[in-house]
Amino acid sequence: MPFPPPCHRHLPGLTLVELAAAVALLAILVAVALPALVQPLERSRADTTRMRLVSVFNTARAMAITHRRAVTVCPSIDGTGCDADWARGWLIQADRSPNAAEEASPRQFMGGTRSPRIRVDSTEGRKYLRFQGDGRSGGNTLTVSICVGAELHSAVIVNNVGRTRSARQRSRAPCPF
């Protein structure tokens, strides 16, 4: 008895060509949509940096009032010393108490952003902020500008009384540095 001819059924699924076309189409869509997704993400990171900077300044002022001695805030990358980059982190350090030579000065480090597109810089000539024991900030008003790319995003301002406020830039403006 002869065998019946083999049945050629088409199995469901994708061919390699169909799969490659789908992956190529997906890659094109991602390449077009990615810049539109990066911008809001960077603005969100800049907002977080602004809020954390306000928190750092308020913490330093409260520390100065609580310990009744000067407290300095400066930019720091790793918390071991002051640096010039306000975006990467902040070091809060109280001055030594004049009554206790052996007493260690309280020190606190808070990390900043790791985004290379976010830049943060302070008013020219003010590379750190110092609160007196009564909470006042001596010298001129300190303005810390936060930029995303080449655009100004927001600013954190500390007046001579030591009060901190922040303002988000409403219209497009170039970065001041």
Rank of each mutant, 00 (worst) to 15 (best):
V30M: 14
R168L: 13
R136P: 00
V73Y: 00
S44P: 06
A24R: 11
A150G: 11
V71E: 00
A60C: 05
C175D: 08
G138V: 14
R136L: 04
T141H: 03
T49Q: 06
S76R: 01
P12K: 14
M51Y: 08
G133F: 00
G149H: 06
M63K: 09
M110F: 05
V38R: 15
S154V: 12
V156P: 01
L14T: 13
T15K: 05
V32A: 04
T141W: 00
P106I: 12
G139L: 02
E102T: 15
L34A: 15
A60L: 02
R43W: 06
H67F: 12
V73P: 00
A100H: 14
N159T: 04
N58P: 01
F3E: 11
S55I: 02
R117C: 10
V17T: 15
G111L: 00
R96K: 11
P35H: 07
P12A: 09
N58D: 04
C82K: 02
P6R: 15
V148H: 01
L41C: 10
Q132H: 09
S97C: 11
S137I: 10
L91R: 04
T72S: 05
F177L: 15
G139T: 01
W86G: 00
G138C: 04
T123H: 08
G81F: 06
L16D: 08
G81V: 08
M1A: 14
D134H: 14
P116E: 11
T49L: 04
R61G: 04
R163F: 03
R170D: 08
L16G: 10
R69G: 01
T48Y: 04
G162S: 05
H153T: 09
L91Y: 00
C147E: 04
V161C: 06
S115I: 07
T143V: 11
T80F: 12
A173C: 10
S145F: 02
I65K: 12
V161Q: 11
G139I: 00
T123A: 10
C82T: 01
C147S: 13
V17L: 15
I157M: 07
P5I: 11
N99R: 14
A173T: 08
L37C: 13
A22E: 10
T113V: 06
D47C: 05
P4F: 01
R165M: 05
R9D: 10
Q39G: 11
R107V: 01
V38G: 08
A27G: 15
N160E: 14
A21L: 14
E42Y: 06
N99Q: 14
P40Y: 10
M51V: 15
G149P: 04
D134I: 09
R117F: 05
L19R: 14
S97I: 07
C74L: 03
E103M: 12
S97H: 09
L29S: 15
I28F: 15
G138A: 06
R43N: 09
N140W: 06
A150F: 11
T66I: 08
E103H: 08
S115N: 11
L53V: 07
F177V: 13
C7Y: 15
R45C: 02
A87I: 05
R88A: 01
A33V: 03
S154I: 09
D47I: 05
T15G: 03
A36T: 13
G79P: 03
P4T: 07
Y128F: 06
I28H: 09
P35D: 08
L129E: 00
A70R: 11
E103V: 09
A64G: 03
C7N: 13
K127A: 04
A173M: 08
R165T: 04
R45A: 06
